[in-house]
Design a protein around this nucleic acid. Sequence first.
DNA 1: GTAGGGATACTG
DNA 2: CAGTATCCCTAC
Length: 187
Amino acid sequence: MPEKEKAPATTTLNGGGEEEEMREGGGAMYPPPCHQRSKRLAATATPPEEGGCDLLDYIPKSGWRHGGRLRSARERGTWSINIEPCSRDLRSASEGQKHGSTRNNDHWTSEEVKELVDGVSVYGVGPWTKLKNERFPISVRTAVHLKDKWRNLVKAFTGNVKRRITPRLDKDCVEKIKRLAADYPRK
DNA sequence: GTAGGGATACTG
DNA sequence: CAGTATCCCTAC
């Protein structure tokens, strides 16, 4: 491929106020096409108001544990469930980039993982689209994301990982993952 | 639509 | 700093 579109320095389209500061201190040598993924959405992003959905209910509660400190998605300004694109996403869209719409999440919550595992136990490994429509209808998680996450889970619980960066998962959930991983070997 | 690979960001 | 998790792209 020729090259990626350089992220324009004029990222000031969100008059919200909080500007994401680039951390190019010595890591990314190439500017991401979309907004800095590491920077996530600022607090000015679309707050997940209770739209009356089950998924929206548990996300804020289930936080992401970081070194024993509970860092809720809200604290970090990230929402696992996004019902509409934020201003930053619109920017990317205007640039012709399709990114952004699904870039409102960070790590999966234990509830999401549980839902995924439960779905896999019912539909099996493969029909991610069906699983998405049944269990994550309004979630930003796409079928591809579900697939990727499942792969990560299998890799994390079947292999020998030195460092495990995973939310609190129920023992039953972990067992189910292993069971399903063994039942559905990588094709 | 699904599977696999690669790149980037984050955590410990 | 090394390893892990997530996301995007390409091929089947």
